[in-house]
């Protein structure tokens, strides 16, 4: 897991009610499927946390758009693993 994601996960557990991401399997459903951990309200909070931590660590301002999230085939929030890959691409891009 990269540093941005680790910090965002720690903050999410501290700030979002009923959410525990720290011991979650990298391939467990995060958002979008029936038993996913995040509902849409929590997802928006988590996105703000990620954008905030991304800026703090890289100095780059990113905006995660709704279009990227609603994409069924390539939603970065499907699992922690897809999210990590997405953040790596954002940092390299």
């Amino acid at each position: 897991m990269n540093e941005i994601l680790n910090r965002a996960i720690k903050r999410a557990d501290e700030e979002i009610s009923g959410v525990k991401l720290q011991n979650l399997s990298p391939d467990a459903a995060l958002f979008g499927e029936g038993k996913a951990i995040l509902d849409s309200l929590n997802l928006v909070t988590f996105i703000f946390i990620i954008e905030d931590e991304f800026l703090k660590i890289t100095g780059k301002k990113i905006k995660i758009s709704a279009q990227e999230i609603v994409s069924k085939s390539d939603c970065p929030f499907r699992t922690l693993r897809t999210l990590e890959a997405y953040l790596r691409r954002k940092n390299e891009g």
Binding site: E14, E15, I16, S17, L41, V44, T45, F48
Partner: peptide, 22 residues
């Protein structure tokens, strides 16, 4: 305050009204 706020919001504020950003 952030950790105290989380407990306060869980007790007092309906889920749909809880702010996404503090």
């Amino acid at each position: 305050i952030r950790s105290q706020l989380k407990s306060f919001m869980e007790a007092k504020i309906p889920a749909y009204m809880r702010p996404q950003r503090i």
